[in-house]
Design a protein around this nucleic acid. Structure first.
Length: 207
DNA sequence: ATCCTGGAAC
DNA sequence: GTTCCAGGAT
């Protein structure tokens, strides 16, 4: 998967992206939403995971997609039932937004999950991070994800002390993230950098 | 730039 | 009981 033939790799790919992706291939957790290219399933998983740990989100994800396996079933359900499947997760506006957005996909996109960044961003509850995740994971489009994990990996690897809770800091990291993105394998690369941040490059006493 | 969520961690 | 988190909305 990370081997690419007949193509010259950039220095940043060789020294940053490749080792990262090799590490990922060897150490990543196997999670159901990583086994699919369906943007709907990836979307559901990303919304659940926004403020929820993987361990807790897993059961909710499995139950949710079993009952609502696609946009149409979610859109035609009533809100109370959608909320029932969310019960215990908190941040219930995420579930309401999912439901509303699924109806918007039916109405405005003929039931087909949108495939451009601009359209995906129009879905309620989908910000820059989630749009980049959905499009890179499902369609391998070159959008760099930028979440807490990525901030941490980049700041440590590149020795950047700029705080991320300022406009300038966010801008700096956004540029860096875009410049080191492996455009040959955006989905794999994005998964890899976040997984490293989650498993190894952790906030306190990193491995 | 500021506010918001609500469980988890402290 | 207070603070923290991690994204999105306004």
């Amino acid at each position: 998967m990370s081997q690419r033939y007949n193509k010259k790799l950039s220095d940043i790919q060789v020294y940053f992206a490749q080792p990262l992706e090799d590490w990922y291939e060897k150490h990543h957790r196997e999670l159901p939403w990583r086994e699919t290219n369906d943007p709907y399933l990836i979307w559901i998983s990303e919304i659940i995971l926004q403020q929820t740990r993987v361990n807790q989100g897993l059961g909710y994800y499995n139950r949710f997609i079993e009952r609502f396996p696609n946009v149409a079933t979610l859109a035609s359900a009533n809100e109370e039932e959608v909320l029932k499947y969310w019960q215990g997760l908190g941040y219930y506006s995420r579930a309401r937004n999912l439901h509303k957005a699924s109806q918007m996909i039916m109405a405005d996109f003929n039931g087909v999950f949108p495939s451009t960044y601009e359209d995906v961003r129009r879905l309620k509850g989908v910000g820059e991070y989630t749009a980049a995740a959905i499009l890179s994971f499902s369609a391998n489009l070159p959008y760099a994800v930028l979440d807490g994990n990525v901030f941490r990996v980049l700041s440590r690897y590149f020795g950047i002390a700029t705080p991320i809770d300022t406009t300038a800091g966010k801008k700096e990291f956004k540029q860096l993230a875009d410049s080191v993105l492996d455009s040959d394998a955006p989905g794999l690369y994005n998964q890899a950098i976040m997984e490293l941040g989650a498993l190894q490059c952790v906030p306190i006493s990193p491995n």
